[in-house]
């Protein structure tokens, strides 16, 4: 069972940032549960967790960051998209800086992972915060104009994406869903 976490303050934003991710999970024939950032979250019940993005002006999830602290002990796969990248970075001691990026940019993938091979890929960005560099336990897997576009939590199948893979890089989500965490 996949846990999908919405970081959207408004349901109208969920149609934009959550529903497209759920469509990919459904197409893969997998079951999912949707929870919201303001709920108490019990991650251990799920095989994988996807934390979706939200609107550019939406930071309400930052008021509920404690709900995500359990992820530091979680052993399953995590895919943090935009707000999810922000949250996963924060709980691992990496504080994203204010860096706005809107539109399609080329990501340089510097190390291969189960999500994407080394090389270049176009991706759609919509964020206000990003990491300029990362410290342990995070390692950078992809870069865009001096910011970390993809990172991984060392020793785990847990990733942060500063872009929205549900727009131009659906295969990243499919690869995440199909990859075994064992």
């Amino acid at each position: 069972m996949i846990l999908v976490v919405s970081t959207c303050k408004y349901r109208l934003s969920e149609e934009e940032f959550v529903d497209p991710v759920i469509d990919i999970i459904r197409e893969a024939g997998l079951d999912y549960t949707l929870k919201r950032y303001s709920e108490k979250l019990n991650f251990t019940r799920y095989t994988k967790v996807i934390i979706c993005g939200t609107a550019l002006k939406d930071f309400d999830y930052m008021n509920y960051i404690d709900n995500f602290l359990g992820l530091t002990r979680y052993r399953g796969g995590i895919l943090g998209i935009c707000a999810g990248y922000h949250i996963l970075g924060l709980i691992h001691g990496n504080n994203p800086l204010e860096m706005r990026r809107i539109g399609v940019y080329k990501v340089k993938v510097v190390a291969s992972s189960p999500l994407i091979d080394r090389g270049e890929a176009k991706a759609y960005f919509l964020h206000n915060y990003a990491l300029k560099n990362v410290e342990k336990p995070l390692i950078a897997l992809g870069l865009v104009n001096g910011e970390v576009a993809i990172y991984k939590v060392m020793g785990k199948n847990q990733f942060g994406l500063a872009f929205h893979p549900e727009v131009l890089n659906k295969s990243i989500i499919r690869n995440f869903l199909n990859h075994s965490d064992k």
């Binding site: 109208l12 149609e15 934009e16 497209p20 469509d23 609107a55 550019l56 809107i102 539109g103 919509l126």
Partner: peptide, 21 residues
């Protein structure tokens, strides 16, 4: 991209409920 940038400049929330539908 253009809608999002203009909304941000004007301090507006941007909602696209049909995005990737």
């Amino acid at each position: 991209t253009r809608f999002q940038r203009i909304c941000w400049d004007l301090g507006l929330w941007c909602f696209n409920p049909l995005w990737q539908i």
